[in-house]
């Protein structure tokens, strides 16, 4: 099914991108979010955890996914967009992650034409750090 006015169709890929998640980015994210959990910031502490080293905030990876959605749907993502994800694996500082998305259905509703997308963020080994679905009004 395609959406005539927007030229969107099931199977369309969203424009994903890669991002090098450095410790500097993690530190900046701690400042931005107020989440100063030492598992993200303190290597000595993080060494005592199950991960044995610092990990990036899960919400940082999710933020990258929402950057993709905001770029793809600039008029509507922040006005009615919804997402539901699970965090499957930690991202370690130094890793390059890749966001991805695909339109998996398009439906007509009282609110308008809604696209449902599979979305996520993959680690270098191809496993998902974040995965789930988003719905957004097509523009």
């Amino acid at each position: 099914m395609s959406s005539g006015s927007t030229q969107r169709a099931v199977g369309d890929a969203l424009a994903g991108f890669e991002r090098h998640v450095t410790q500097d980015r993690v530190d900046a994210y701690a400042e931005a979010s107020g989440d100063h959990n030492p598992i993200h910031l303190d290597e000595a502490y993080a060494a005592t955890t199950q991960f044995e080293t610092r990990i990036a905030h899960g919400m940082l990876s999710l933020a990258l996914v929402t950057e993709m959605l905001a770029s793809e749907f600039p008029e509507s993502w922040h006005k009615g967009g919804k997402l539901k994800v699970r965090f499957s694996a930690p991202v370690f500082p130094g890793e390059v992650v890749a966001t991805y998305g695909e339109i998996i259905s398009i439906s007509e509703t009282d609110e308008g034409t809604i696209a449902t997308c599979s979305i996520g963020c993959k680690k270098p080994d191809g496993t998902d750090a974040v995965s789930g679905r988003a719905t957004v009004l097509l523009e």
């Binding site: 424009a15 991108f17 991002r19 500097d24 980015r25 993690v26 900046a28 994210y29 400042e31 931005a32 979010s33 107020g34 989440d35 905030h57 919400m59 940082l60 999710l62 933020a63 990258l64 929402t66 950057e67 993709m68 905001a70 770029s71 600039p74 922040h78």
Partner: peptide, 27 residues
Amino acid sequence: IAYAEAVGGSESPAYGDTLAPIMVVAA
């Protein structure tokens, strides 16, 4: 500004004087 440093890149949308809502959720 810290959020933009953490998350931003050449692909990022121009937020102007607005925020990514996910930042409010994270806060």
